[in-house]
Design a protein around this nucleic acid. Sequence first.
DNA 1: GCGCTGACTAAGCGCTTGCTCAGCATGGTG
DNA 2: CACCATGCTGAGCAAGCGCTTAGTCAGCGC
Lengths: 209, 209
Amino acid sequence: MTSTPIADLWPAPPGGTDSRPEAAYRLLQAAVESFAERGFHATTTRDIATAAGMSPAALYIHYPSKAALLAEISQAGHAATLALVRRAAAGEEEPAERMRRLVEEFSAWHARGRMVGRVVNYELHALPEDAYAVVAALRLDIEREVSALIEEGVAAGAFTVSEVRTAARAVTSLGIDVSRWYTDRSTETPEELGRRYGELVLRMLGARV
Amino acid sequence: MTSTPIADLWPAPPGGTDSRPEAAYRLLQAAVESFAERGFHATTTRDIATAAGMSPAALYIHYPSKAALLAEISQAGHAATLALVRRAAAGEEEPAERMRRLVEEFSAWHARGRMVGRVVNYELHALPEDAYAVVAALRLDIEREVSALIEEGVAAGAFTVSEVRTAARAVTSLGIDVSRWYTDRSTETPEELGRRYGELVLRMLGARV
DNA sequence: GCGCTGACTAAGCGCTTGCTCAGCATGGTG
DNA sequence: CACCATGCTGAGCAAGCGCTTAGTCAGCGC
């Protein structure tokens, strides 16, 4: 149940003697896996601390609360996803080619990082209000980025869609839902899945084949 | 936050003097809404009982446990969804037409019954093991039904897909995820959404336009 | 040696949880 | 009337929760 974890979201802990960030990193990792598998409310601080190899009290030296752990995971995860989407949408190629890459990477990310993906997409309701506000803004940005790319493609005559918002919903929806159903036992690699989903989405948007 | 609730999943309570099933129905309704909004583990038996207009102890006259409430909701919800899918897939029309209706109704159902949909799709991990086994079988049946219809369409030359399993995943995925994002404030009606998603899916499957 | 710091633990506090139980009002039946 | 089943409540129990507190101990500058 590992998946590729938060290694690409947080800087790797330094190999040096400094043990502070390494312990905090272990807690984050343990929290991601517990929250993803059992959900925030079914996870106890004892679960997280034990999985990180320390006593329950040690958690509070690195994070002020269980909710703060969730907030950090959710914000970093959303920020990474938005960055991925922006990178793909801002390329130099034709809109269709950029959309293909966007869907490929978005889907593969949700397969590879399904643990983070589950926390990011399905534990929103457990966020403290202020953290939720930050995250909601990031989600809006992601959707806007996808909508803008579709609109650009429609204007260029590369896509044919009747409702841009609905189409954008469908595109992000497909990717997000990957984190729900993808498992270790899936025979498709994240990259294969990305390529196939890229094809499906281009057809969905009425792109020339 | 009501959505169309479980009225189509359980027989309506008799209007007569008999209050037993009516009270159990109120509990189910309250449980669906609490589980959907806060999640199973964040919902207390006091929440459910209070929302149903009774004391916490009264819950246990109608259901043996909190988990039994979840199990009933999940099993009935899955059974209703499978029935919907079977009805659409078993028609007399061409595969493409049946697929259009399947997606239309599947998507509209997940928008209209998003509360039940959320419990059904996102609270699986909280199910007791035996109830989970039942539900997992129903989910497999749903996916098989969709796969079979795609295969039929491919054989008839109506669809063009490279990987049937991946395409089937995408079709069900789109519908399931509706229950995550659809809200009271959505401007699309469930029926509009269904029609648009039906179009998108047909294009995705390479059906003749 | 000394004093200090920072990561950590054992113990446990106050509170909430799922669930139980004795008892009460109601109403149909002899 | 007595009898009892039914649907429910008020009070509360044992267990588990997030988080705190007091204290231990290795490492380090002096």
